[in-house]
Nucleic acid binder design. Structure first.
Lengths: 197, 197
DNA sequence: AAGAATTGCGCAATGT
DNA sequence: GACATTGCGCAATTCT
């Protein structure tokens, strides 16, 4: 309930352990339109990393918008060109939402309602507060992850060491046992001879 | 030569296996000035995450600049406010560099030369190409990291299992040994009696 | 000298 | 609703 959290996500655990999948993009209508060009591929191991087409957009900081919603390098042309200064920001959502309106609402039932989804305008203090908090959470989470990884690593080392000791002990015991067995067999013979005599 | 590549890095393998340390920031003068507000603290475990002051900047996309150089939430005010449109971009370095000029150039010998460092303007095709390549590399690298982590984890599990088996074997051998010892002592007594008779 | 690999960071979507 | 996770792209740095 904590480590492999997103196991529930459909597409996720689908074909691999965990990373490299769209995850958010694929499921969310807002971002889905420009979803996975890059992320998709990470699945087919090596090789495939070099797929993302090099659309050389003309816009300047489209990257901003781009990254804002984790979209790779699509939709650089049309939309997303007005918010360079991020003043109208907060509306990336809307823009995309509307851009997508053409989709039959029947196919995306529960997702059409909040067309404006509360205009979080990136200027709002609330927005910054949210972001700030999330950033803190992110740092914390990553720190935790790092610690976890470290622990696992050290645990492995420790176990390996312990393993060696155990194996040595086994070797020792085995030898001891052989010795005793030998002695016993000797005694046995001896006893046999005595009985025969 | 491939997995634990940055083993040579001083601070790195210093105290632990691999992650969690500043690494780059701590060593480089340029970034060091605004370096670790966030990373620093991540060391002192929990608690300290809520430190970043909630400067509610007035600017809009300062975030852009912000993130551009991975600086946490400092320098929101003065500099970094002119490149919203990312045209002059590439000069973040300079801005900061100049901001830092007060530092005796003797301390930063090799870093003052390329004042303009080739103005890569984010519009250039080259820039996009670079970014694209880096993104690919990043994905690849992360995939690799994930695999590595997974492996370590599995290895730990495997070792643990093996450990149990070994311990069982030891228990078994020990018991067997005890049995033989007992038998031998019996024989010994028996032999002694026989000899005495 | 140049490109690939790493790493920390913030954002946004999503999970809990 | 707040916090936790996670994928993603950016930029800085390091490795090769």
């Amino acid at each position: 309930m904590m480590s492999d959290s997103r196991v529930s996500s459909v597409i996720q655990e689908w074909v691999s352990s965990y990373p490299g999948q769209p995850h958010s993009q694929a499921l969310n209508p807002v971002s889905s339109n420009q979803a996975a060009p890059s992320s998709q591929m990470s699945q087919m191991d090596m090789i495939s990393y070099n797929q993302s087409q090099g659309i050389i957009r003309g816009g300047a900081d489209d990257r901003v918008a781009e990254q804002m919603m984790g979209l790779p390098y699509l939709s650089y042309n049309s939309s997303c060109l007005n918010n360079s200064s991020n003043l109208g920001s907060s509306n990336h959502h809307q823009s995309h939402a509307s851009t997508q309106q053409d989709f039959s609402p029947f196919l995306l039932p529960t997702l059409r309602a909040p067309v404006t989804k509360r205009s979080i305008s990136k200027d709002s203090a609330e927005y910054r507060l949210r972001r700030e908090r999330n950033n803190i959470a992110v740092r914390k989470s990553r720190d935790k992850a790092r610690r976890r990884i470290l622990q696992t690593h050290q645990r492995a080392l420790q176990l390996q060491e312990e393993n060696q000791k155990l194996q040595m002990k086994i070797a020792q015991l085995t030898q001891e046992l052989d010795t005793l067995k030998h002695i016993l067999s000797q005694r046995h013979l001896q006893g046999g001879e005595e009985g025969a005599a």
